[in-house]
């Protein structure tokens, strides 16, 4: 049982950290503006997984008092990171939408998406 939890820990934390690193790599090295925004959104996903994994409880149930689970408050996973991530996902969508509209606007003015060809930052 202990070994089981250890493997699950490495899998969840490992995939979350891998998502963050892959997103950071794309943001740092890619030239296309859409790829940079895509890297940011992948990095966001990794951070959300990390925060949810911090609130997990071994053998826990979801934080909902349904029939048959009236007295299960000891076994419930932590609801606070879930509320924070719920907020963060919606905000992340707003950030992505604004970033993409800026990308469209830049394309309209410079006719290219490569950041090394957009030299004069005057609109």
């Amino acid at each position: 049982m202990e070994k089981y939890l250890d493997i699950l820990e490495i899998v969840i934390y490992g995939s979350a950290v891998a998502l963050i690193l892959i997103g950071l790599y794309g943001t740092l090295t890619k030239k296309s503006l859409i790829k940079i925004v895509l890297g940011l959104s992948i990095m966001d996903s990794g951070i959300h997984l990390l925060m949810i994994a911090l609130g997990y409880l071994k053998g826990g149930t979801a934080p909902i008092f349904s029939k048959g689970y009236e007295n299960a408050a000891d076994r419930m996973v932590d609801p606070i990171p879930q509320a924070l991530v719920l907020t963060a996902i919606v905000i992340g969508f707003g950030v992505t939408a604004v970033a993409l509209s800026l990308v469209i606007r830049l394309y309209r003015h410079h006719d290219t998406l490569r950041i090394d060809e957009i030299k004069n930052l005057k609109w």
């Binding site: 820990e9 932590d78 606070i80």
Partner: peptide, 8 residues
């Protein structure tokens, strides 16, 4: 950080 343990 122990996975699956209460630590907040």
């Amino acid at each position: 950080i122990d996975f699956g343990m209460p630590h907040f």
